[in-house]
Amino acid sequence: MTLFTGSGVAIVTPFTNSMEVNYPKLKELLEFHIENETDAIIVNGTTGESATMTDEESLEVIKFTIEVINNRIPVIAGTGSNDTKHAVEFSAAVEKLGVDGLLVVTPYYNKGNENGIYNHYKSIAEAVSCPIILYNVPSRTGVNLSIPLLEKLSKLDNIIAIKEASGNISYAAEIARIIPSLTIYSGNDDMVIPLLSIGAKGVISVSANIIPEITHKMVISFLNGDLNKGMRLQLDYNDLVNSLFIETNPIPIKNAMNFLGYNVGPCRLPLGEMFEENEKTLHTILNKHGVDKWI
């Protein structure tokens, strides 16, 4: 089973200046992605600042997103936690909202052992019936999911995919070789084409917040056999992609969106404003690419 093929946007959560969720702006963003060929919405993830949202806020944002999208493209919600009980309860609550799938990050900070991590995911998988995408991002969690552990997890019926953000192409290739049943999505915007070349089905993208059509075309062109076009789009926009990670995500993408007129508001603390030199670099690259302003 494949939840989506192409570009899934890891969508930002827009805030007002008083740090409340800006629902009218969120609706605009969602419609923007429908109009610009985004293939799936990933809500309440790292880019959506889930770490600073209450459960009540997260549930309301997910519910709102599902209602606005109204089955036009898949909606996948982040429900991971370093507390298994909380992840189980929250995942079950999100499933009841009608989400198409869950994105569940590796338990972070605790640095669980393999038995613990397996049982963490097993508990979540048994509590829901919707598809689950594992999220491997050791730079944030401090844990890399081993190939034997992934192989074991892939045998659970509703664990169907992995968002792979280790940055290790050899590791990703081993997943593709040993566990072909596990759909791979790139979790790094600068490595989309390399992962597609070993069988990945798409990307869960930060840069798609501002270049949705380009990200979609890069993936679909490559998958449809136009390898040169896909490769060219990856290489042509990698400086922009890299500038969006010049500081901790989602600080630069929100800065970029505000610079372009999207008016998505600030990040919640502890994510602060960009350093002036980094902001200048980001804006220079945005201007160089002529990225369209918000319409």
Rank of each mutant, 00 (worst) to 15 (best):
I11A: 02
M19S: 07
P24D: 09
L30W: 07
N44S: 14
G48R: 03
A51E: 13
M53H: 11
S58L: 04
I62W: 05
T65S: 15
T65Y: 12
N70W: 08
N71E: 10
R72I: 15
I76N: 05
G80S: 09
V104Q: 01
Y109A: 09
N110F: 06
K111L: 04
A125P: 04
E126Q: 08
P131C: 02
I132M: 02
I133G: 01
V137K: 01
V143G: 00
I147C: 11
P148A: 03
L149F: 04
L149D: 07
L153W: 01
K155E: 12
D157G: 01
N158R: 10
I159K: 03
I159H: 00
A161P: 09
G167C: 07
S170N: 15
Y171W: 15
I179P: 04
L182T: 15
T183I: 15
D190R: 03
M191A: 14
G199A: 05
G199C: 07
S205F: 13
N209E: 09
G230Y: 02
D236Y: 13
D239P: 04
N242V: 01
L244S: 07
F245P: 12
M257D: 01
G261Q: 09
C267S: 10
L269A: 12
G272L: 13
K280F: 12
H283G: 00
G290L: 08
